[in-house]
């Protein structure tokens, strides 16, 4: 299985590299023709390369992925800046940011109130995690969470999806039959596909990773959405300037479609739209 996906990835890499190549040359042209030899500020982006197709080390030992290539593209469009990556364990990323070892964090960081209190986020999300009901591919009877009444929905105890289901059950008189497990078997996909349970609640972003064979499909409206942003140091004017400039480029890239294309290339889905 691993081998197969690795082989499947090869054309993708080639394509991505080729894409980088062409963009490289085009920016070179623009810099040489245009502006000044102003001082270039080097910004260090911290990441934990353990997230396949998002921020990871490919078979050529190159740091790449959706998050990484997007940052590279953003900085190509930012005159006066260049970016370097610093790799660290996920747990230490925010600490490295506070201690100024890195200037911002690139790691599918979700904005939540606790983090927003301590850190600065840029304003324009470059991706969204949209949590929806996920059912077997051939199941057409379930189209929203309300259709799950009396159905079995599998979840991991203590997960965000469990909380969501429990809250729904509180308001709807235990309508959903929640099937708990501890998640060690990683068998949610086979349980849903085989019909042992009817559905799960899962973020669309992670679904291709959980279900590489495409046995499941997300249905219905978004149940919860999180904005994916970059994390910067708070109360640091340089950081604020950088965040604003990055926001500008993300808006640009969203408008010209290159943001969606990058997502499509790496994740095979457009994760950059707030809606389904």
């Amino acid at each position: 299985m691993k081998k197969l996906t690795a082989i499947a990835m090869i054309p993708l890499f080639v394509f991505a590299l080729a894409a980088c190549g062409t963009k490289n040359s085009s920016t070179n042209v623009s810099t040489s023709s245009g502006s000044s030899p102003a001082k270039v500020i080097t910004v260090i982006a911290g990441t934990s390369p353990t997230f396949k197709n998002v921020t990871f080390i490919d078979t050529n030992n190159k740091l790449t992925g959706f998050d990484i290539e997007l940052v590279r593209e953003i900085f190509k469009r930012l005159p006066g800046y260049q970016v370097e990556f610093s790799q660290a364990e996920f747990k230490s990323l925010l600490l490295n940011l506070e201690t100024k070892k890195i200037d911002f964090v690139v790691n599918q960081m979700e904005k939540n109130p606790e983090r927003a209190q301590k850190y600065l986020f840029n304003k324009e999300p470059y991706a969204f995690w949209k949590t929806r009901v996920v059912v077997a591919k051939d199941n057409n009877s379930i189209n929203s969470i309300d259709d799950l009444k009396g159905k079995k929905v599998i979840t991991t105890a203590t997960s965000a999806s469990a909380t969501l289901l429990e809250n729904y059950n509180k308001e709807h008189n235990n309508a959903i039959n929640i099937v708990y497990q501890n998640g060690a078997a990683n068998d949610q996909v086979s349980q849903i596909a085989s019909g042992r349970v009817d559905a799960e609640i899962y973020p669309d972003f992670l679904l291709p990773d959980q279900d590489p064979q495409g046995l499941l499909k997300p249905v219905g409206p978004i149940l919860s959405r999180s904005d994916i942003l970059y994390v910067f140091r708070k109360d640091d004017p340089d950081e604020q300037v950088l965040a604003d400039k990055i926001d500008q480029v993300i808006k640009e890239m969203r408008a010209d479609g290159s943001l969606a294309k990058l997502s499509q290339d790496w994740l095979k889905l457009d994760m950059t739209k707030p809606q389904v």
Binding site: A157, Y180, Q181, N182
Partner: peptide
């Protein structure tokens, strides 16, 4: 509990 059988420890979770 690994196979979603709710026994005592699973219930505790």
């Amino acid at each position: 509990f690994t196979l979603s059988i709710t026994e005592i420890l699973g219930q505790a979770n």
